[in-house]
């Protein structure tokens, strides 16, 4: 079950990366980032069985940072939506080349 968990976390991370590349909706890209964070959490939990409890402690800190990131990121998305009337990343070109 250990090796399978590592493989599964690799698969979930790759799906998240493909999703960020494939979608243009800022909220869905954000959800793909959450999926990637969750894949890393799965990796840490799987490793913690043989490497000690620190993996699970670290997962808790990752979850906290993910919650903070979701709150601030969604606030930024709401603010952008007020300005552009859209969450499509094609429209956000102020800081792009």
């Amino acid at each position: 079950m250990f090796t399978e968990s590592l493989m599964l976390s690799a698969v979930l991370f790759a799906i998240g990366v493909a999703g960020v590349l494939l979608r243009r909706n800022a909220i869905v890209m954000f959800m793909c980032i959450e999926l990637m964070l969750n894949a890393v959490n799965l990796f840490l939990v799987a490793v913690s069985k043989y490497a000690g409890i620190e993996g699970q402690i670290f997962v808790m800190f990752v979850m906290t940072v993910a919650a903070a990131e979701a709150a601030v990121g969604l606030a930024i998305i709401i603010s952008i939506y007020r300005h552009y009337e859209s969450v499509d990343v094609r429209n956000f070109r102020l800081l792009r080349w």
Binding site: S5, S48, V59, M63, A67
Partner: peptide, 18 residues
């Protein structure tokens, strides 16, 4: 999967927080 990997508390946190 967290429950199966013996991380019961982290599984509860996952359901509650995520």
């Amino acid at each position: 999967l967290f429950v199966l990997l013996d991380a019961h508390f982290v599984a509860a946190l996952q359901v509650l927080i995520y």
